[in-house]
Design a protein around this nucleic acid. Structure first.
Length: 351
DNA sequence: AAATGATACAACCGCCTCTTG
DNA sequence: TCAAGAGGCGGTTGTATCATT
């Protein structure tokens, strides 16, 4: 590295930030002659830079068609979607965002989007919800808040699934969080952790969120079990959580190994909603299996409408694509790009 | 007001692919 | 077919700026 720098110094090759004078020389030259051979350009333009540096400066900063400023919501969404299909192919992604450079997108991804996805509980590499216990539980307060919000909104959507209302009331972030909550419930629905270490981990991680989680399950379980009105018994979230008591009883099995509050203690402090426990239908529908079913499909009509909305938003010029066959509600965010059919759609779209 | 840490982004580096002779 | 050079790409680093203590 040092020898390289020395060699560069000997050759009078400058490195580091570009000065306005250098920028102007580069712009003037390319305007007059085009860039031609990048290797030859610096000498011809009177710059003490290597060709590579000139090319980078031009393509990433000086090019006249470069769009400056913050990324819009649409651009953000598009980058996430494209990344789910293309991975770190920044140049390929950049071709879909006019005026944005691969470098800019890459930086934006690394500094903003990656964190955003992580905060949403989505793995930025796989674009799937993160299911490891630590991460799920670490995000529990956020997830519960988001899920409560989304459940409230989604349950107000008419049976016919007013997609517009759905989109207005609940963004993809909320949906992703519901997906994650689903994961939590799955974790909690399985047998108690097989060893004391896992028990302790879960207990300490859950901590104060225990009450919140219980409350959420209790408040919404009747809704999860409701018929969505389309006759097939599916519910919007596609899973039917066990009775909260049953789920949490798994936790109580290792209550002594952790610092979890006792269920009884909690219910005593929250009596305002206990009627829901008795009146809701969930009591008659306690699943026999500990495993929650996978997220369920909504009707194909609903899906196509939803997909079209997503696709229209992403690419207003291409609203009809027969290869798009998303069928799951999770398709709204993250997973929808991992769905095989969806991926083929995006590949088609990109190609 | 100064120190420290976090964040954003421009720029560089090394590797890979493509082109050309 | 192969080797060399040029260009392109993705990962990483360095530095300026902003936020917090």
């Amino acid at each position: 590295m040092e020898s390289l720098q020395i060699s560069d110094e000997i050759n009078n090759i400058k490195k580091g930030p570009w000065t306005p004078e250098e920028d102007q020389k580069l712009i003037d030259y390319i305007r007059k002659h085009g860039h031609g051979s990048w290797r030859a350009l610096p000498k011809l333009a009177g710059l003490n830079r290597c060709g590579k540096s000139c090319r980078l400066r031009w393509t990433n900063y000086l090019r006249p068609d470069i769009k400056r400023g913050k990324f819009s919501e649409e651009e953000e969404q598009l980058i996430v979607n494209l990344h789910a299909v293309l991975g770190n192919k920044w140049s390929a992604i950049a071709t879909r965002l006019p005026g944005r450079t691969d470098n800019e997108i890459k930086n934006f991804w690394n500094t903003h989007l990656k964190k955003k996805l992580l905060q949403m509980g989505i793995d930025p590499v796989t674009h799937r919800p993160r299911t490891d216990l630590n991460n799920v539980l670490a995000n529990l307060p956020q997830l519960l808040a988001a899920a409560n919000f989304a459940v409230g909104n989604l349950m107000n959507v008419p049976n016919s699934w007013d997609i517009n209302a759905l989109k207005l009331q609940s963004d993809a972030t909320q949906l992703a969080k519901i997906q994650l909550l689903h994961n939590i419930i799955q974790i909690l629905s399985t047998s108690p952790p097989p060893n004391i270490e896992a028990s302790s981990l879960l207990g300490s991680s859950l901590g104060d969120n225990y009450n919140q989680l219980f409350e959420f399950l209790r408040m919404n379980s009747h809704q999860f079990h409701g018929n969505n009105g389309n006759g097939n018994g599916n519910v919007p979230f596609g899973f039917t959580p066990q009775e909260p008591n049953q789920i949490l009883s798994n936790l109580l099995n290792f209550d002594s190994a952790s610092q979890l509050p006792h269920l009884g203690d909690y219910t005593n402090t929250s009596t305002s909603n206990t009627s829901q426990l008795g009146s809701s239908s969930y009591a008659n529908n306690i699943p026999t299996s500990n495993q929650l079913p996978a997220l369920v499909s909504v009707s194909s009509a609903d899906c196509s409408a939803l997909n079209q909305q997503i696709e229209t938003k992403i690419n207003p010029n291409d609203i009809s694509n027969p290869s798009s066959t998303l069928t799951t509600f999770e398709a709204n965010w993250g997973d929808f790009m991992d769905d095989e059919a969806s991926q083929s759609y995006w590949r088609d779209f990109i190609e």
